[in-house]
């Protein structure tokens, strides 16, 4: 059996469904499980998501779940849930040989033949953010990835075996302690510690192919084009999956809110992809869903500040500009 999972909250189910739909369209033999850091709001949601299925976080019984909820933010919690969902899926599906993870903010554009081939040789597959340096001082810096991680936590593939399970255990232990966002203290959710993966574990493939995980952090080395109804990277490789990290449907002027290197004006090659993604999200009412509350986390204090919040942001930005940060 072939299984893929993702992790999100009710507020991001439109993205999850868009990702899963595109995945199954090219890979009909795969089933997608949506790991939900939330509780199912009503039964019709499950109906709507079909053929994809929901797995609530309560079901997988993370040790000390209450304590984790107390110390991590919703974002951190969604990240650190990955290795727990993965272990649970291996445990509950005895025939599961391969398990793939994709972030919800992706679209898949091809069959997984390459990933499957890699997993005949390797136990773990991860992707680096990029494979060539860039030199300018726009955001993100090259060194931002020294803080946030060389490899992207948005995708990994595992082959059932001792090494993959050893990795999942290690990853769980790590994020349960250090799964915070805190660059100064060497922490960035589940992602930064992946730096250790090729050092600590055997049979890890760092997949350099430009087909994988195309996103703003590697657009300096990858361009996208359309040919014969398919998407291509650098004119030579069929696009496998695109990661729309930081794209916000209510901030359509930005390719990603996490960067200022690439603009639509210059990167007309990727614009049709984002348009496609936008349509997929609109179809599933992403904008309305985004405001759904979470069963475990209430809105943070500053969301209740109203207008003052906006002023504080502006003032903070002004001081930062003065300090030349």
């Amino acid at each position: 059996m072939n299984l893929v999972f993702t992790v999100c909250t009710n507020s991001h189910l439109a993205q999850a469904k868009a990702m899963a739909d595109s995945l199954v369209a090219y890979n009909p033999a795969y089933q997608v499980v949506i790991g939900l850091v939330d509780k199912i709001a009503n039964a019709s949601e499950s109906e709507w998501l079909r053929p994809h299925t929901i797995l609530e976080i309560e079901t997988i019984q993370i040790p000390d779940f209450e304590a984790l909820l107390g110390k991590f933010s919703l974002y951190e919690m969604s990240c650190l849930a990955k290795p727990y969902f993965a272990e649970y899926l291996f445990k509950t599906h005895a025939s599961l040989q391969r398990l793939l993870y994709f972030d919800t903010d992706m679209l898949i554009f091809d069959a997984f033949d390459d990933i499957e081939a890699s997993l005949t040789q390797y136990d773990i597959v991860i992707t680096p953010h990029f494979t060539s340096p860039f030199g300018d001082h726009k955001s993100p810096h090259l060194r931002t990835f020294l803080n946030s991680g060389i490899y992207n936590g948005g995708f990994f593939a595992l082959r059932r075996g001792d090494e993959a399970l050893r990795f999942l255990k290690w990853w769980q232990d790590y994020v349960a302690e250090d799964g915070y966002v805190n660059f100064c203290r060497g922490m960035f959710v589940d992602q930064l510690c992946l730096n250790f993966l090729p050092v600590f574990f055997k049979n890890v493939l760092v997949e350099h192919s430009p087909r994988y995980n195309v996103a703003y952090w590697n657009l300096h080395e990858r361009s996208v084009s359309q040919r014969d109804g398919n998407w291509w990277v650098n004119g030579t490789h069929r696009l496998l999956f695109f990661h729309f990290s930081g794209y916000q449907i209510d901030a359509p002027t930005h390719l990603s809110v996490h960067q200022d290197r690439h603009e639509w004006k210059v990167r007309t090659d990727v614009q049709p992809l984002f348009e496609l993604y936008k349509q997929a999200l609109l179809k599933y009412n992403h904008s309305e869903r985004l405001h759904l509350p979470n069963a475990y986390f209430r809105k943070p204090w500053h969301r209740k500040l109203g207008k003052i919040r906006g002023w504080i942001i502006v003032i903070c930005r002004k001081i930062l500009k003065m300090l030349d940060a």
Binding site: V181, P300, H302, I312, C316, R317, I319, L320, A325
Partner: peptide
Amino acid sequence: LRQLLRQL
């Protein structure tokens, strides 16, 4: 300030 901004 950055931390505050991130939160806000």
